[in-house]
Design a protein around this nucleic acid. Sequence first.
DNA 1: TTCATTGGTTACCTCCTGGTTACTATTAGT
DNA 2: ACTAATAGTAACCAGGAGGTAACCAATGAA
Lengths: 110, 110
Amino acid sequence: MKNETAEHSCPLTKAMANIGNKWKPIIVCVMHERNLRFGEIAARIPVISRKVLTDQLKEMELDGLLTRQEFKEIPPRVEYGLTEKGKALLPILKLLQEWETKFINQVSVV
Amino acid sequence: MKNETAEHSCPLTKAMANIGNKWKPIIVCVMHERNLRFGEIAARIPVISRKVLTDQLKEMELDGLLTRQEFKEIPPRVEYGLTEKGKALLPILKLLQEWETKFINQVSVV
DNA sequence: TTCATTGGTTACCTCCTGGTTACTATTAGT
DNA sequence: ACTAATAGTAACCAGGAGGTAACCAATGAA
């Protein structure tokens, strides 16, 4: 979610600019226990395209949510890991999941 | 954030489909203490356009986040209020704000 | 008769997001 | 000589999200 006004606006807007999109919360979640290689992330989220995954990982690195470590090997190996900022998001995302699960049927059915 | 796969996917994806956009978290926040009329919400979020606000409120009503009560008066009066589901979001959004504030400077500066 | 008020609606437009597909580099293994 | 493996890129595209501006209905007040 691009947001030109994010810089001079409330923390909530900035937070949503960081993780308020389709894939980023999921990427954070799948990395909860250990660093993962690019291919491992892709395997855990099979429905995401490689291009979009690359884009998201780049943005998240810039936003300080995760680190990227490139090993100079052939075939290439790249490992991604959560930063402290990224890790701090985990309990919040867990709450969000619980919230969704709790109120799963409380929508107006049209 | 429209999401065709939301129905058969993880709660997190569904949660983000509910509130993962530019305005909805803010709308929830400004309604934290009491019901508000359309114009009051608009006044609390001056940068949102009327059309977008209307759209968001409609979607949030459908998603069970808030209620809409129309009084048959002239000029019209419409009051919006958080549902239990919407209220349950408040502490989570508060955590998100705190998270953002805490890590506010921890981004890679390019 | 005209205006102000409220809560919208309608038509239209732009740009971003996410998506597909094909392509790349480099080395080891057969 | 050819293939497999990894982590991407590049070119291109459709659709949706958010935005602007003008308009509307109903009534009381001036």
